[in-house]
Amino acid sequence: MKTYLAISLLAVAASFATTPACAQQLVPAGSEIAFTSKQMGVPVDGKFRKFDAKVAFDPKKPETANIAFSVDLASVSLGVAETEAEIAKPDWFDTKKFPQAQFQSSSVKASGGGKYEVTGRLTIKGTAQNLVVPVTLTQSGGNTTAAGSFVLKRLAFRIGDGDWKDTSMVADDVQVRFKLALTGVNAL
């Protein structure tokens, strides 16, 4: 059930795909990928502890952005060791066969006021889906924060196979939230 939440988090990672011309560095200490799923109507929160991004983004030329994002699916944290062990199994993330979720951007479009729409392909558990993620960039000092949220459909990625396909037990929608800190982004 909580495994399904973890997939949401992966989706958040995918939504971070906003980058073009200059290479930036992810600041893990200031970054987070979190998700909320519902199990029998009760919200369940989780996050991923390990993820990485290769980002090239110039705010003046967002159409040239390129981002590749990966999330270590075994790094899911739900606060319950038993649930985290369950999520690694084949019905959920199948982390032995599919250790990472990956996102590759295909386009970035400016919406004005530091807002962007990042389009790309998210692959989880061997299934790829196109995704459009709204991202807001803010800057303070030498850091840029990319933040946003979106809804991920877990069943589209085969997260929660078998008995877990019943959406009355675990909802199909997973709310993914992300905040990614970057260095090296030019002024907006």
Rank of each mutant, 00 (worst) to 15 (best):
F51H: 01
D52P: 08
K54N: 07
K54V: 08
K54D: 15
V55R: 12
D58K: 05
D58F: 02
P59S: 03
P62Q: 03
E63F: 06
T64S: 01
A65N: 04
N66E: 11
N66Q: 09
I67L: 08
F69D: 14
S70Y: 07
V71P: 10
V71K: 12
L73H: 07
A74T: 08
A74C: 12
A74N: 11
V76F: 11
G79H: 06
A81T: 14
E82F: 08
E82A: 10
E84P: 08
A85H: 12
A85V: 03
E86N: 05
I87Q: 05
I87V: 14
A88K: 00
K89F: 10
P90K: 04
P90A: 02
W92M: 07
W92H: 11
T95G: 07
F98L: 04
Q100A: 08
Q100F: 13
F103T: 10
Q104E: 13
S105W: 05
V108D: 03
K109T: 03
S111K: 15
G112E: 09
G113D: 05
G114T: 04
E117I: 15
E117L: 15
E117V: 05
G120W: 03
R121V: 12
R121D: 15
I124Q: 02
I124Y: 10
K125E: 14
G126N: 02
A128D: 04
N130T: 05
L131V: 00
L131Q: 05
V132Q: 08
P134S: 07
V135T: 07
V135Y: 01
V135L: 08
L137I: 13
T138E: 10
G141I: 07
G141R: 05
G141V: 11
N143C: 11
N143F: 10
A146Y: 12
A146H: 01
A147Q: 06
A147S: 13
A147L: 01
S149N: 13
F150V: 11
V151W: 11
V151T: 04
L152M: 08
K153G: 11
K153R: 14
R154A: 02
L155W: 07
A156I: 06
A156N: 04
A156W: 04
R158H: 07
G162M: 03
W164E: 00
W164R: 01
D166P: 05
S168P: 00
S168R: 02
M169R: 06
V170A: 01
V170H: 02
A171I: 09
A171G: 00
D172K: 03
V174T: 14
Q175G: 09
V176S: 13
R177W: 06
F178W: 13
